[in-house]
């Protein structure tokens, strides 16, 4: 989130709004515009299948741009991931990345999955509190999750429980704080 106040809004809003393409939302709206959801046919099919596959779990479904989103409870992560990988209808064998996003009141862990077989993609999201972030590891499902989780632990302090080797990866031993979080300051220095 930008911490500076928005200053460009006041300048000539009319002329600029004219120059813009009509497809883009008008800028003068009080709330910020939201990116449209545009699932392709594979995404539509997947969002139909998902509730059947994960009928045992408490999962919220939504979509972000062209990806199906499943919001999962942290404790369900290993099981949901395992099913996502092993179920033939899903077959998510390829873990694109694990990204942690700091929304200040919560840390969101995103598992971006892709299926090389079925050629569809989805995101599994889970939210934890920043004070005590614990998510069970997914290294048992995809071996590639190892470094992604270590990086998430390094930069955001998310503890991936049962991870075999949660040592610092990109930071050195003894680094204080979690630099990926919004509360971590940038290095500032003054002109002299």
């Amino acid at each position: 989130m930008s911490d500076e106040p928005v200053s460009e809004d006041s300048e000539k809003p009319k002329a600029e709004a004219k120059a813009e393409k009509p497809a883009r939302p008008a800028r003068k709206e009080p709330e910020t515009p939201t990116a449209p959801v545009m699932l392709d046919e594979r995404g539509e099919a997947l969002s139909g299948v998902l509730p059947k596959v994960f009928s045992d779990f408490e999962i919220e479904y939504s979509a972000a741009m062209d990806e199906v989103v499943a919001i999962v409870k942290p404790k369900d992560i290993p099981e949901v991931c395992r099913i996502a990988k092993e179920d033939e209808r899903l077959n998510f064998d390829y873990l694109r990345s694990i990204s942690v996003v700091d929304y200040e009141e919560r840390l969101e862990v995103n598992y971006h999955l892709f299926s090389l077989e079925n050629r569809h993609k989805m995101v599994i999201k889970t939210s934890v509190s920043p004070d005590d972030p614990h998510v069970p590891t997914a290294t048992g499902v995809w071996r590639g999750a190892d470094w992604h989780e270590r990086e998430g632990h390094d930069l955001f302090g998310v503890v991936f429980d049962d991870h075999p080797n949660l040592k610092p990866l990109v930071l050195y031993e003894g680094f204080e704080g979690f630099p990926g979080r919004k509360s971590f300051p940038f290095h500032e220095y003054e002109e002299w």
């Binding site: 930071l171 630099p179 971590f184 300051p185 940038f186 290095h187 500032e188 220095y189």
Partner: peptide
């Protein structure tokens, strides 16, 4: 990278 937390200036 002069604003980075991990770079020696």
């Amino acid at each position: 990278y002069y604003r980075s937390y991990s770079v020696v200036m």
